[in-house]
Design a protein around this nucleic acid. Structure first.
Lengths: 214, 214
DNA sequence: GTCTATACTTCGATAGAC
DNA sequence: GTCTATCGAAGTATAGAC
């Protein structure tokens, strides 16, 4: 549905629009979603306040634009991790990105009360989780085993939960045993992930290292 | 510290004050923390708007009062779980309380940008985690084993993370393998928690069932 | 696409009568 | 403790000239 109710103004791709999305993202990260107001986002972007509502009909539309940009970037990084030489480590690194933690938290809170953002977040989360599952599937297959209990999706849930927990603990200043858990993760990555390039301790050699740089 | 900077007005215990805290909590859960405004919280509580700033110098003070009430209730429930007949199950149930999920999420977002709330949340989280560790310690001791790797605190982190992950997944509509994980949890509770009252499958009998009703 | 100007609403917080 | 009344600031969104 291209023009639902108010075809008053279209909004193509433009320099200003990008600047507004950037400004909004910065505000969310630095001060929380409540800081994203017409005037403040315009000031941060260095444009006239009226332009905000020219490019985005409502503030919620701006939120959606910010979310989509971050979501697409994350999905791309996750896809690269899945296809990379060390899927598990790649997934771990993507999910441990500290910058995303605050942003995710804000959108999670937003989604609780804004239908549009909620459904967008749900769709994104499902795709994100699916990619994680693919990464895990690739590693499991390389080891020549079959997961029964827990199943592959369940194990994915458990593993993908860990970085999020560490991130949330970090957000509230809980650092107890963080180091130990990180060391444990490192140990398991060494043991179960596909072997690093140049690592002689491979127990299976037919993985194709189609790595792409960043 | 009874009168820190602005001794303009004191605020004792009163019916109105409680009503305001209740109203604010309801607003946070239903519509997010941004819905807590002077006028709206007064309307929800059925009192005059000016009373909000009589009882709470700022809106942030009101947020803190709401948080403290919930935090103290949670700590009490967690303490009861620790002392109860089945510590692991008790902890699991306290942490899986669906009502708290939204509230926690809101305060987590708030804490990202409000110093006072951040430090309050940090202190609370540490105490909460400590109680979880005590529960786990009690069960581990009952089994007569010693945890070395992962250590007790690390295992606590891992275990206490699971219900939070499930809650967050639930918040974004991710229900994949939720049932399987829940069943897995149930299985482990049956196996490792202290035996339920009247359960003949005890492998150790010197636990004192000092349960307290709620 | 971008600007000025503005309509309308709601905000936090306070003063002062009762 | 509770009320009426209000200040000044900030919010969303739009109209219309350029």
């Amino acid at each position: 549905m291209p023009a639902p109710t108010k075809p008053r103004r279209g909004a193509p791709e433009s320099k200003t629009r990008i600047a507004l999305v950037n400004a909004a993202m910065k505000l969310i990260v630095d001060e929380g979603y409540a800081a994203v107001t017409t005037r403040r986002v315009a000031a941060e972007a260095g444009v006239n306040p009226a332009l905000v509502h020219y490019h985005f009909r409502t503030i919620d539309d701006l939120f959606l634009a910010v979310f989509r940009r971050g979501a697409e970037a994350n999905l791309a990084r996750m896809q690269a991790a899945v296809d990379g030489p060390q899927p598990l480590r790649g997934v771990w690194e993507v999910m441990s990105e500290p910058r995303d933690t605050g942003l995710t938290l804000e959108f999670l809170a937003l989604a609780n009360h804004r239908k549009a953002i909620r459904s967008e977040l749900a769709a994104y989360s499902a795709r994100f989780r699916e990619l994680q599952e693919q990464a895990l599937a690739r590693v499991v297959q390389a080891h020549g085993v079959t997961l029964d209990k827990p199943s592959l999706p369940a194990l994915t849930l458990l593993l993908s939960g860990l970085p999020r927990i560490l991130a949330m603990d970090d957000a509230v200043g809980l650092h107890r045993s963080r180091g130990e858990v990180l060391a444990l993760v490192e140990e398991y990555l060494e043991r179960y992930d596909l072997p690093a390039v140049g690592d002689p301790s491979a127990d299976d050699g037919d993985a194709e290292p189609g790595h792409q740089a960043d």
